[in-house]
């Protein structure tokens, strides 16, 4: 990674800390979080504390457990949005090759098909049988171009190689 993008990363982390600073550890986010209710390894209050004090989530990969339901964002009395903070952390983690395989798979499908899950001929047929129109599709080259120009193609490439290493 170039120095410039590392600087960018450090700056983003600094910004994140600042948005988290108003937190006074009331725990409303944790008591509202559906994931925490069933899987205590994602504890929103502790996550915010850890982001402020250590600049990262309590344990590696925690950010990916967030369902982005925005309950924490809705209820925080201090206007801290853990959901948005974790979204930025996911972006950073993906740039480090740590994105979960299923997320990569969906994004690959979008790049190829313009749609998150591959469009099967069966579902096309089902639409036809129901009298639904054939939907116009985006030019795949346009989608690829946008993926390349905005960084996602690179992130996908990187995660493909790291997940390849992991499975070897």
């Amino acid at each position: 990674m170039s120095d410039m993008s590392e600087d960018l990363q450090t700056n983003r982390l600094k910004e994140l800390k600042e948005t988290a600073l108003p937190c006074f550890q009331c725990g409303v986010c944790s008591s509202s979080c559906p994931v925490f209710r069933v899987s205590p390894e994602l504890n929103p209050r502790v996550s915010v504390d850890s982001i402020i004090s250590r600049g990262k989530v309590p344990s590696e990969g925690n950010e990916w457990l967030c369902a982005y339901c925005l309950m924490c964002d809705q209820r925080c009395p201090m206007g801290v949005s853990l959901a948005e903070i974790l979204m930025v952390i996911k972006n950073i983690s993906a740039k480090e090759g740590q994105a979960p395989p299923d997320v990569i798979e969906s994004a690959e499908s979008l790049m190829a098909d313009g749609c998150q899950s591959p469009i099967s001929s069966r579902s096309e047929k089902q639409r036809e049988d129901m009298g639904l129109p054939k939907l116009p599709r985006a030019d795949p080259e346009d989608v690829k171009m946008l993926f390349r120009a905005t960084g996602a193609a690179e992130v996908l490439e990187l995660n493909r190689s790291t997940s390849g290493e992991a499975s070897e």
């Binding site: 990916w64 979204m87 996911k90 972006n91 993906a94 993926f147 996602a152 992130v155």
Partner: peptide, 9 residues
């Protein structure tokens, strides 16, 4: 998925 990978994309 996509936003989690790259906000710009």
């Amino acid at each position: 998925t996509v936003r989690a990978l790259s906000d710009d994309t």
